[in-house]
Design a protein around this nucleic acid. Structure first.
Length: 882
RNA sequence: GGGCGGUUAGCUCAGCUGGUUCAGAGCACCUGCCUUACAAGCAGGGGGUCACUGGUUCGAAUCCAGUACCGCCCACCA
């Protein structure tokens, strides 16, 4: 780097250094004698592309991992992708559909071939994009949740829990997604308040021969299309209004099927009419009532959400179309009493946004009780810490109410359930077909391989992701309690920090804790940092359909990865949602440029054998202390995961303290050389600043670090130690602050009076001594005159704490103005003194407040008195000179 | 319906277990500067009844209670 351009150009720099880092395998980690620091990536969908949420999450991960690396830890960040069964399968289905192919027609094998093809084509793009962001993942360790070893781990886990008795198959009411044609877990259902209607329907009492009498009861329902599946009407036994119905039978409207009236306390008396139609096949609560009363179950809605032949009428119609039609039919038949507008929560599929249909089906479940109890304890005990802490409450609530986990999905893309059915319908669960055959033969000796049929379902994706912190290191571990962790797992587990969104606290975080406790006997990570959700300026969630999400790669190309990282972090205070605004990325780019230009300045210094000035000496002493102070603050922020605060502290240190104050103080006049000591200190500080900010801005810091001193091939800032705070005298900082205030006072006068920064001025300080005078002279462009006597009336005065200062400005001073200013200030001080004294004369204050607080009040009183005294003197002087 | 969190400057947020001259930061805004590191810059400046109402206290942005909004999570009263 010879000539430095006036503007920093990120694109030229970033690719170069990323290639350099890869070439030297700086990100690769192997177990060694050092302390490990481990992060596993929240695996993105294998066919996904980078969005702003990923940028935020992975920037945070990278900051943490780079910081740990510079702190001397053996840092390992394991990357990888998730097979995301529903999301991926629906993409593949969509693509095949474009070619006119239906998955049912080509069969499982062929479909999976297409799916793998798709994965090879589109998979892992996102991992390439993470490189652009600067992520320092150990790419040699890249994993995929459906790679053979990890799939084996999933299967072994299933067999393990089955044999433990925690996995069972049962017919249950599940959340059926009629579009994806699969069951989904409770957590994948989103309830939204939805406008609908409450239909009041008359059911006529049967005369005993299936003929209607003129008596009727009225029920209220939101789903009139399900009446054909009714198998009872239910009332509360305590509801006297309905006692006349005891033992009666009623007729379902339109189809006139006879059903009994039953009593159950589940029914709310004051909701609707107090009569509930019971539809066990299509409603969870009704199903439970049906179980209690031995009601038959009649299913009238098929997998696609259409009425089937059991419905007798409207067969083949979609459920929502059927609803409209049946309302009309009911009205015509005289069964519709009235229709009310009604808002009720309706479940939607998280994936397809289809209205979930409660459906009875045979599914596989994992018992949660014991797993959840242990996992709750992990967090309650603090072995895993949540940041922000508020999520512990949410977590507890869920863990205490966890229902058994429906782990089967009616899909093909995923790990197929290792259950094999015998011809008689019984089944065996084994990890392989061979083992299954053996087990089957133990039951039925002459059974052959071709007699066995493997379960068609695959496992929920989270049933593989929950093993991630274990399986990425040692896939043989889950499901094998007798297995000894391999070298990697023993070294890297438990991981240190996990950064993820709060939306998957139950899907993923909780379950990883369960798996960790179950298979490793301890927590999978020490800290979980929950980021906010990235929203646009208007607070809307970023989404493809809204088109309000920028492409991170465009941003990186325009502003550079460092700028994008800064931009994301600047607006991401912990625990809050992120309001993304491109202006913040511009701010990041401006900061890069600032760093770049400060380097241009110091690189251009010409060395000469000249003495160091007093101002330079003072500035160096001060900045050394300031640097240490800030490092302490930054470390504290990091320890609390306050990454944006850490960044802001460094930002201000670099920009305000180093550039605006330090460099301006030590900068020689234009064209003049600098002495060796000052230059050395300046470079030393700059290098420390680079190391301090490197975790956040990896590229520009490497670029400048490589240039600031001669480096050998293979050297890198990545492993340079984080700067350490050293002991310093706080008085140095205090003195400098006073000097700054004096400088600001002069600058204020310059600005008000339109006096250019170069025009030489005097500064009268009414004191025997004052700190950092050479600095004040240099920074304010003044010549200081110390004197115990007050300044004459031809100056503009200001106060620094209790010290009176004045800039002599013959002819420019308006005594009237000065007088008015002084009088106003005097008034303020007198009032201030009054309140201070009121406090001090309050006996209860004096007797109750801690000594330090009282001491401070006394100091306030003394300071105020001293100011009043000098103001009064000044006013007197101004009046006399009139 | 239950639970959790929030309300501080135009915007996004700090302000921990009450007490520094406590009302802050960044951005935005206004004024003046193209002063050879940087106009992606420099210097200066304005701006808030800390949601509301009470209470506790010598003292409240901070603690307590209630009210009003806002957000999130859990929950299928048909």
């Amino acid at each position: 780097m010879k000539e430095l351009a006036a503007k920093y150009s990120a694109s030229q720099v970033e690719d170069k250094w990323y290639a350099y880092w890869l070439e030297h395998k700086f990100f690769h980690s192997e177990p060694n004698e050092k302390e490990p620091y481990t992060i596993v990536i929240p695996p993105p969908n294998v066919t996904g592309i980078l969005h702003m949420g990923h940028v935020l999450n992975n920037t945070l991960n990278d900051v943490l991992i780079r910081k740990a690396r510079m702190d001397g830890k053996n840092a390992c960040w394991v990357p990888g992708t998730d097979h995301a069964s529903i999301a991926t399968e629906s993409k593949v289905v969509a693509r095949l559909k474009e070619q006119g192919i239906r998955k049912e027609d080509i069969g499982r094998e062929e479909f999976l071939r297409h799916a793998w093809e798709w994965k090879e084509e589109h998979g892992g793009i996102i991992l390439q994009q993470l490189r652009k962001l600067g992520c320092s993942c150990d790419w040699d360790r890249t994993r995929f949740t459906m790679e053979p070893a990890l799939s084996d781990a999933v299967i072994n886990t299933f067999v393990y829990f089955y044999k433990k008795g925690w996995i069972y198959k049962g017919v249950r009411m599940v959340n059926w997604d009629p579009e994806a044609l699969t069951a989904v877990s409770d957590d994948e259902v989103i309830h939204k308040d939805t406008k609908s209607h409450l239909y009041h329907l008359r059911y006529y009492i049967s005369d005993g021969n299936g003929q209607p009498t003129d008596k009727y009861l009225t029920i209220a329902t939101t789903r009139p299309e399900t009446i054909m599946a009714d198998t009872a009407i239910c009332v509360n036994p305590a509801d006297e209004r309905h006692h006349w119905l005891r033992g009666k039978k009623v007729l379902i409207p339109l189809i006139h099927r006879e059903i009994p009236v039953i009593e159950d306390e589940y029914v709310e008396m004051d909701f609707g009419t107090g009569c509930l139609k019971v539809t066990p096949a299509h409603d969870l609560h009704d199903y439970e009532i049906g179980m209690r009363h031995n009601l038959p179950v009649i299913e009238i809605i098929d997998d696609h959400g259409r009425l089937n032949h059991e419905a007798c009428i409207l067969v083949g119609e979609d459920r929502f179309v059927a609803r409209k039609k049946i309302v009309k039919m009911l009205q015509e038949a005289g069964n519709l009493e009235k229709t009310e507008d009604y808002n009720s929560p309706v479940g939607y599929s998280e994936r397809t946004n289809a209205v979930i249909e409660p459906k009875l089906s045979a599914q596989w479940f994992l018992k949660m009780e014991s797993l959840a109890g242990t996992a709750l304890e992990t967090v309650e005990s603090g072995r895993t810490r949540f940041i922000p802490e508020k999520y512990v409450n949410t977590y507890r609530h869920w863990m205490e109410n966890a229902r058994d986990w429906c782990i089967s999905r009616q899909l093909w893309w995923g790990q197929r359930i290792p259950a094999w059915y015998l011809p008689d319908g019984s089944f065996v669960v084994e990890a392989t077909a061979e083992a299954a055959l053996k087990a089957a033969q133990a039951i039925c000796p002459d059974i052959k391989a071709e007699d066995l049929r493997q379960d068609e379902d695959v496992l929920d994706t989270w049933f593989s992701s929950w093993l991630w912190p274990i399986s990425v290191f040692d896939p043989d571990m889950p499901g094998h309690p007798e297995h000894q962790p391999n070298k990697d797992l023993a070294y890297y587990y438990p991981t240190n920090d996990l950064v993820t969104g709060p939306d998957i606290i139950f899907f993923w975080v909780a379950r990883m804790i369960m798996a960790g406790e179950e298979f490793m006997g301890r927590e999978p990570f020490s800290n979980v940092y929950f980021t906010g959700i990235v929203r646009d300026k208007l607070g809307r969630k970023m989404s493809k359909t809204l088109g309000n999400s920028p492409d991170p790669l465009d941003l990186i190309n325009t502003y550079g990865a460092d700028a994008v990282r800064i931009g994301m972090l600047l607006c991401s205070s912990a625990g809050n949602d992120i309001f993304y605004d491109e202006a913040q990325i511009k701010q990041g780019a401006a900061f890069c440029n600032k760093i770049w230009n400060s380097y241009r300045l110091i690189k251009g210094f010409q060395l000469a054998d000249i003495p160091q000035t007093q101002a330079q000496k003072l500035a160096i002493e001060w900045f050394r202390a300031k640097l240490s102070e800030t490092i302490g603050q930054v470390e504290d922020h990091y320890s609390k995961f306050r990454i944006s605060d850490a960044l802001m502290a460094i930002y201000k240190l670099f920009w305000d303290d180093y550039c605006s104050w330090y460099l301006e103080a030590i900068k020689p006049a234009f064209g003049q050389p600098i002495d060796a000591n000052t230059q050395a200190a300046t470079l030393e500080f700059f290098e420390a600043l680079l190391r301090l900010i490197h975790p956040v801005m990896p590229f520009i810091t490497e670029e400048l670090w490589q240039d600031i001193a001669p480096r050998k091939e293979g050297e890198t800032i990545l492993f340079a130690p984080s700067p350490k705070a050293t002991a310093f005298d706080p008085a140095i900082l205090e003195d400098f602050t006073l000097a700054m205030e004096a400088v600001n006072g002069v600058r204020g006068i310059r600005s008000q009076r339109n006096i250019g920064p170069k025009e030489a001025l005097g500064l009268h300080i009414r004191a025997a001594s004052f700190p950092c005078i050479p600095l004040i002279e240099k920074m304010a462009g003044v010549t200081v005159q110390l004197s115990a006597a007050p300044a004459d009336g031809n100056g503009i005065g200001f106060m620094v704490r209790t010290t009176e200062m004045s800039v002599p400005l013959e002819g420019l001073v308006n005594p009237e103005e000065e007088l008015a200013k002084a009088q106003k200030e005097l008034e303020y001080q007198q009032k201030f003194l009054q309140t201070t004294r009121a406090k001090l004369s309050n006996e209860r204050f004096v007797s109750n407040a801690p000594a330090a607080v009282i001491e401070n009040e006394r100091k306030k009183e003394a300071d105020s008195l001293s100011k009043i005294e000098s103001l009064e003197a000044k006013i007197k002087q101004l009046k006399e000179s009139k």
